[in-house]
Design a protein around this nucleic acid. Structure first.
Length: 851
RNA sequence: GGGCGCUUAGCUCAGGUGGUCAGAGCAGCUGGCUUACAACCAGCAGGCCGUCGGUUCGAGUCCGGCAGCGCCCACCA
């Protein structure tokens, strides 16, 4: 035990020791019912960790440590989500490169020392190599941070979503979905990001408020007269395929079944009725285009409308042939002339130009009316999404809805109200899950397509690999029965060029971590898992897709419990974001306050609740850690190097009552932890501890310093040792470093492998006398003495000439049992216990000695 | 438009099953080197528990309405 204990150096010391001793190593011999398995969220590897990660991973770590101490064998892996767009984007910026899949691989390629501008084009294999190089560096930095924070992860169970095992699991599951018919390919209208040039899924959308304007366009009616239609997207006029109004709308009822002519382009479009049309929106009649928004897709599908696509994958208007089939016009020459003004322009540019053309043609009625309206964006994108028709791979989810809802009911949510988010998402599903992405750094779709003798790719003739070949890359691997020189040739094959959505792989984390199909013995010991911890913003993505995939592969829930953490807000309670520049990075805070202190702040944040960064709270945590050091030094210093007397030596009422109360705290903390309520467990423990220091240690001090043979001293020392041992273990999940340090002063082994305290070891508290809590009573009297000294502006060491306590007889009887401790702690010369009747005035009178 | 959460001292928040529940920490103020702790200790002050109504002998604590803030889902011509 050091003379002046300190927090300095504890983190390095114990992190190294835990690694060396394998303190957190999972024992795979443990049977399933003794295992506590966690589906750790693999953080996205693209730059640095966020304080939000520290926050929520600490929550999980406290629960894992509790379960481990309770005797469960913790299966607590770490994963890295390194595949996907964030990594690609980071690599592009970091090295100044862009991927061009048409280029050949350059085995000797090294990126320039200074990122070139404009970025240099490199082949897909070279690009993937750079992705792997950069993620390896990031992952090392992440691991270092997690170790510094004291996460009790078993680092031998580490995986990444791009590593061969993850690719194998992802491709295997895909092939099985394909074989069962759970996955299918389809050419269909798809949400499309024009900058990344990839499809995205419903789960990756977000709405952003953007300025727009209603443009009132006048359509001529084939039957004579005209009708005005309001639109925010006049640039899609050429793609108009119908006008739609509500069937009950009397203004337009006469027009249903007739035809209108689009301005500028003279295309005949039907006027139709559909329930989804809103009479109160715009002019009450909508222009259906292929495709301006998701409602257009609905109308197009349900009304059987033709397709006239004008927006290309690059977000520019594509050339069309007016007068050709599908592009019939009353005035093909005029249509071509007008469209010629728009072709090749981006949608924004085309909008400006078409408004001018419409105004010249007299078809724009009045001025555009500016509005602000929500527009769909890819969550990582900078421009609004377009909808283009493309061939994509989908996983059936709409047909699974009832089953998914049932799983959501069966899952135990912490806090329970988070279940609503899942349910409203599942109920609102509009399309199957699009899992293909037109990107490069991801798990390839493991299929090829036959090329017909005419040289045309036949997407209906799928070539799939056998499972034992996985993982494969169809751009370099060859299907069975073919050889490489047949790639792209008539009668040959081509590989699917796409990769899977990152969620299509990370949705398998319980299977990847549990080594599904590769280590059946391990899998049976850890699956289904106990806990899915994650933040609430990815319920609709990670949590939802994991349930989908597990339902398909195993027909069950992947875990019994989901613990949903909140976000970390900046000190002004604003959401942190890179664009606002208010992101707080964890490393400086860890260096400034220490891991235990940062963990303390995190553990004070309730499950599911957004919490502001609060360095003040971290300071409180640091103070608590220092207090634990000092209080421990006092308690252990009284043992004079000898072993503490056993619990049977505790005989004094004060000591027994302190232990009795501690036993209640143990029960409360245990119950709270079992319900994943680490915050309450910490609060109860901490509250007891401060009272223990302020009152109990002061009261027991003189006795603890006494003759080691005296019964009172033995009782004090035994109680101190037991109470300290229990409290260190209660604190261990929150403050792993300082508790381990103190534990090492007098106990063998790690506190983190010690048994969680329970009522059995505090059974001696059964001997506590009935009646009032002596510690609480003595604490009250002691407080009165301190108040008197403070109010007299005297030192706490000042003597009390006379202390008179007037109270009910039973309370006085209890107080009498601590008379000696009270006299010593208060510096009292004469203590008088004076009984009062039932209506007497209870009180404490303190007479200080002369200075 | 549907749903969820929050609204308690200047700040951040606790307050199972309704009756010492009006609390903690921080900040503030006043004191104190007390043999575990001066990066400490002791003490003080601070609040019509968002609002209106209801249930009850009694409501931060239960029910309903309203308001503000935040979020989820949907819509978004």
């Amino acid at each position: 035990m050091p003379e002046r204990p300190s927090l300095e150096g504890l983190e390095e010391k114990w992190a190294a020791r835990w690694e060396k001793d394998g303190t957190y190593r999972f024992d795979r011999a443990a049977p399933r019912d003794r295992v506590f398995a966690v589906d750790t969220p693999p953080p996205t590897v693209s730059g640095s960790l966020h304080l939000g990660h520290v926050f929520s991973y600490t929550h999980t770590d406290t629960v894992v440590r509790f379960q481990r101490m309770r005797g469960r064998e913790a299966f607590y892996p770490m994963g890295w989500d390194d595949n996907g767009l964030p990594t690609e984007r980071r690599v592009q910026n970091y090295f100044g490169v862009r991927c061009d899949p048409t280029l050949p691989y350059d085995p000797g390629f090294e990126p320039p020392a200074v990122p070139p501008d404009p970025p240099m084009a490199i082949s897909r294999p070279n690009f993937v190599e750079l992705c792997e190089r950069l993620t390896a560096e990031d992952e090392q930095a992440f691991e270092d941070l997690w170790r510094q924070l004291g996460l009790s992860v078993d680092w031998s169970l580490c995986y990444s979503t791009i590593d061969p095992a993850a690719r194998r699991a992802s491709q295997r599951s895909f092939l099985r979905m394909l074989a069962r018919g759970d996955a299918y390919q389809q050419s269909a209208p798809t949400l499309w990001d024009v900058d990344f040039q990839t499809a995205v899924s419903q789960a990756e959308l977000e709405d952003r408020e953007r300025p727009g304007a209603y443009h009132r366009l006048r359509f001529r009616l084939a039957s004579g007269g005209d009708v005005d239609v309001e639109t925010t997207r006049p640039e899609l006029l050429a793609a108009c395929v119908a006008l739609v109004a509500h069937p009950g709308d009397d203004r337009y009822r006469p027009l249903f079944g007739t035809e209108a002519l689009t301005p500028l382009f003279g295309v005949r479009v039907p006027v139709l009725a559909h329930e989804a049309a809103d009479p109160d929106k715009g002019s009450g009649i909508a222009m259906v285009c292929t495709f301006g928004d998701t409602t257009d897709i609905l109308w197009w599908r349900e009304l059987g409308l033709p397709t006239r696509a004008v927006v290309g994958r690059d977000g520019r208007l594509e050339p069309v042939t007016w007068g050709a089939p599908g592009w019939e016009s009353e005035d093909p020459v005029g249509a071509a002339r007008a469209y010629g003004e728009l072709v090749g322009r981006s949608v924004g540019q085309a909008r400006n130009r078409v408004v001018e053309l419409l105004a010249e043609a007299g078809a724009l009625i009045g001025q555009p009316r500016p509005i602000v309206h929500p527009v769909k964006f890819y969550e990582r994108g900078d421009r609004p999404l377009e909808i283009v028709t493309s061939r994509q791979w989908f996983v059936h989810t709409l047909g699974l809805r009832d089953r998914l809802l049932a799983h959501g009911e069966a899952l135990r949510w912490h806090p329970p109200y988070m279940a609503h988010r899942y349910r409203s998402w599942v109920e609102g599903l509009q399309s199957d899950w699009n899992i293909s992405r037109q990107r490069f750094f991801g798990v390839p779709l493991p299929v090829w397509y036959a090329v017909g003798d005419d040289g045309q790719v036949d997407h209906a003739r799928l070539l799939v690999p056998s499972e034992d070949r996985l993982p494969i890359d169809p751009s370099t691997d060859v299907p069975e029965g073919y050889d490489e020189h047949q790639r792209g040739q008539p009668g040959g094959f081509v590989g699917d060029p796409d990769v899977m959505d990152t969620w299509a792989t990370s949705s398998l984390t319980p299977l990847i971590a549990g080594r599904w199909e590769e280590d059946p013995d391990l899998f049976a010991r850890v699956f289904p898992m106990d806990l899915r911890p994650q933040a609430h913003d990815i319920i609709r993505t990670w949590l939802f897709t994991t349930i989908v995939r597990t339902e398909y592969e195993l027909g069950c829930l992947p875990w019994s419990d989901a613990a949903i953490s909140g976000w970390v807000l900046d000190p002004d309670r604003k959401k942190m974001s890179k664009s606002k520049g208010n992101v707080v990075t964890p490393l400086p805070l860890l260096q400034r306050h220490g891991a235990d202190s940062v963990r303390y702040w995190a553990a004070c944040g309730r499950q599911g609740t957004d919490t502001a960064v609060d360095e003040g709270q971290m300071k409180v945590g640091r103070r608590l850690a220092i207090k634990i050091l000092n209080a421990s030094r006092f308690a252990l210093g009284r043992l004079e190097g000898a072993a503490a007397p056993g619990p049977e030596a505790v005989t004094e009422a004060l000591d027994l009552h302190a232990l009795r109360r501690l036993r209640e705290v143990v029960a409360e903390a245990t119950g709270a932890f079992e319900g994943y309520d680490y915050t309450t467990a910490l609060e109860r423990t901490e509250s007891y501890f401060w009272n223990f220091c302020d009152d109990y240690l002061e009261l027991v001090k003189a006795r603890a310093y006494g003759d080691g043979a005296a019964a009172g001293t033995r009782s004090a020392r035994a109680a101190l040792a037991l109470a300290l041992s229990v409290q260190l273990r209660l604190f261990a999940p929150f403050l792993p470093f300082v508790t381990e340090e103190v534990w090492s002063w007098w106990r063998d082994g790690s506190v983190h492998r010690a048994r969680w305290p329970d009522a059995t070891e505090l059974a001696v508290a059964d001997r506590a006398p009935g009646g009032p809590d002596v510690l609480a009573l003595a604490g009250e009297v002691l407080a009165a003495v301190r108040r008197a000294k403070t109010e007299a502006q005297r030192s706490l060491r000042a003597r009390v000439a006379r202390l008179e306590v007037r109270d009910a007889p039973e309370r006085l009887t209890a107080l009498a049992t601590v008379r000696h401790d009270l006299v010593e702690a208060g510096g009292v010369d004469d203590l008088v216990l004076a009984p009062v009747g039932a209506d007497g005035l209870a009180g404490v009178e303190v007479t200080l000695a002369e200075q």
